[in-house]
Every structure is written in C-alpha cells, then in structure tokens.
Design a protein around this nucleic acid. Sequence first.
DNA 1: CCGGATGACTTGAAGCGTCAACTAAGTGGG
DNA 2: CCCACTTAGTTGACGCTTCAAGTCATCCGG
Lengths: 156, 156
Amino acid sequence: MAGETEWLEPDELATWMSLAALMFKLPGVLDYQLQRDSGLTHFEYLVLAGLSESPGRSRRMSDLAGFANGSLSRLSHVVKRLEQRGFVDRRPAEDDGRITVATITDSGYEVLVAAAPGHVTTVREYVIAGLTPEQLAQLKVIADQILSRVDPGKPC
Amino acid sequence: MAGETEWLEPDELATWMSLAALMFKLPGVLDYQLQRDSGLTHFEYLVLAGLSESPGRSRRMSDLAGFANGSLSRLSHVVKRLEQRGFVDRRPAEDDGRITVATITDSGYEVLVAAAPGHVTTVREYVIAGLTPEQLAQLKVIADQILSRVDPGKPC
DNA sequence: CCGGATGACTTGAAGCGTCAACTAAGTGGG
DNA sequence: CCCACTTAGTTGACGCTTCAAGTCATCCGG
C-alpha cells in the first residue's frame, strides 16, 4: 500500500455508500423472510435449489459450494445439518471416493417447493419491482463487471 | 403468499443471480483485506470511521448503529471489544443517562488512519475502477431505489 | 507397486451476530 | 408525587461461519 492513495471523489463515495448499505441490508431481509416462512436460511435455500435443478437432483460438494457462493467448509457444515433434518442425502461418488455427492430428498424437495414462491415474491418486491427493464439490464452488466474483478476465477 | 406467484423471467433471474453473487462475495474480500492489513472487520472500520468524522469524535450508540447499518446489539458487542482494545471510550451522556456516547481514542484514530488507504484502494480496485462514470451514476440510482424498498425508514 | 504429493472433503475450536431477556433512566397521566 | 410505560443500551446463550488441522482417496514418478 505504498504510494499515493487515490481517495474517493464525492460521487464515487456516494455510490459506494449506497452499494455498501445495500450489501448489508439485502441479505438480512432475504434471510428474515425465508427463515420466518420456511425455516431456511438463504444459503440453505440456495443449496436445496442447486440440488433440485441438477441432473439426478444430485451434485458434488465443491460444485454446490461454488454455486451457492460459499466455502467448502461452510457447505459441509450446512449439508450436515440439512442431512440431520432429512432434507439431503450424502454419499461418496462411486468412481472417486474423495468426492461426496449430495442429493436432495423428497422431503427436502417439498420444503424447497413450499419456500420458493415466497422467496421469489420477496426478491421481486425488493429488487426487481423497483427497477425499469433498462435498469435491470444495467445492473446485470455492472454486477458482472465488479464480480469479474472480485472473483476472476468464475466467469459469468 | 396466496395467489399466483410471478416467477422470474430469465433476464430477471440472471440479474438477480449476479447481484446475489456480488452481495455474497464483496463483503468477503473487503473484510479479508481489512482484517489482514489492519486487524479490523469492515464493520469495526465503519464504526471507527463514523466516530472520527463526527463532531467531538463522538456519537451516541443508536446513531452509530444506523450509520454502520447494524443492530444496536451488534454495535454494543463490537464497541465493547473496541473499548477493550483501547480504540474507543464509552460513557453515559450528561443530559440523559440512558444514552451512551462512544468516542474514538487517539490510538483508535491512528489505527483508522493507517487502515484507510488500504481500504479505499481496495474499494477502488474492486468496485470503482471497473465501472465507467456513467455506470457509477447508474449504480447509485439503482442501489438507492432498491434500498428505499428494503429499508423505507432511511431515506438516502 | 510403493511413497510422497495433491485433491476433496470433514471436523473442532474460536469468534461474531442475533434474539430475547434484562437493567436503568426518563416521561407522563392521574 | 408515583407507578406504569417507553426509550436506550447491555448482556448471555445459542447458532453459524471461519480457520486451521486432520482424514482418506487418488495420482504419479521412480
């Protein structure tokens, strides 16, 4: 961090403040709604959703972790809890014993299906509904551009 | 949640996925940099920054909590830790004993001043630098619009 | 075909955030 | 004045995430 620091211009700062506030508040309202109505965290929801849309309703752990934007360790803990609740099964892959394959159970699928409408409605209400189609397109481009710097590994 | 659910259109979904990924990743890289280089979390940084820019380098707790986008309870825990580290003082307000006023100490100020350049550089590198001035303006509008729905209490 | 390196997780401990309960200080109607 | 109510903040327990360490399987060079 040597050299001159380029401080943020007022408009840059304002944008950053707004984005930062958004980043702190949005997860909260999403988690709150899901937790209250379905007993799931947003991360758990993503995990179940990721499984449900995969072939065989199954997916290997690292893959799921990437999908849900979490660490492998975090996923491991979460999947263990989901397994204890009967929403997910876990077993080693046949061809490579290092790999663990998680599968959503019928009861997990039911929970997901019950949770989805409320979650989607919440996302629509808070995020989508307030934006014009043009802004929606702008937002995708912007988010992807920032993402590509934050996490160059995963192309969009 | 009765009635028909309006599912997300593909482009709506795509935007939401990008935004969601951003919301999960950005806090991580910010926290990581601050933690590594300065031993502060982003929330702690915001708390110190909020104090440093206030008159008398002081601010009451609820006010600070709003500024840093966190609950009062969270702030209370964090300020206790910062106090133990000698970065902040705490004492009841003279005119109203219910109110607690937090003040940043000299050593807290030093830590903040040392942390700021790295943090600002990180924000610039990940968020600002990848966007055109036009996108920057768009992003502020978009973030504020979403924010006003998420948290109607706090106007921007 | 053996042994070290790498890959894919899993685990346990430590720290942080949330929730609910609690304390203490002001306020206000009777 | 008082007692109930509200406001401001603190606290403790609990759950979740992270980090570092550990396990077990597979790969690969000799």
